[in-house]
């Protein structure tokens, strides 16, 4: 039962990461790509971490995986924000003839 649940989580995690990657390659501009990458990939990572902690079964490992997910979340939030901000600033600059 646990294995089955873990498999479902793992596969759906892979699906979200795949979707995020497709989005990053196919979507038209920086903002859409950031949207696809940060949201889909972080959900995918959470599902994979969930699946791995179910497979392992130890609380310590589960907490470590949760910590890894939180760190990835923090890093992707801040970097996505900075990339979007940079890109926006450049657009405004170009529009003003700079």
């Amino acid at each position: 039962m646990t294995d089955l649940l873990a498999l479902v989580f793992l596969l759906s995690g892979c699906f979200f990461i795949f979707a995020g990657t497709v989005g990053m390659i196919r979507l038209p501009d920086v903002y859409c790509r950031l949207h696809a990458m940060t949201k889909a990939d972080n959900l995918g990572l959470l599902l994979i971490c969930l699946s791995l902690s179910l497979l392992d079964g130890r609380v310590r490992i589960a907490l470590l995986l949760l910590l890894i997910w939180l760190l990835a979340l923090l890093a992707s939030t801040v970097s996505a924000h900075l990339i979007a901000r940079h890109s926006r600033a450049r657009q405004v600059n170009e529009r003003n003839g700079g």
């Binding site: 923090l74 890093a75 939030t77 801040v78 924000h81 900075l82 901000r85 940079h86 600033a89």
Partner: peptide, 15 residues
């Protein structure tokens, strides 16, 4: 530029 943002400060404070 932009590294004085609260978000970045939080990142530093956590990392």
């Amino acid at each position: 530029a932009g590294f004085q943002l609260p978000l970045v400060r939080t990142l530093v404070a956590v990392i």
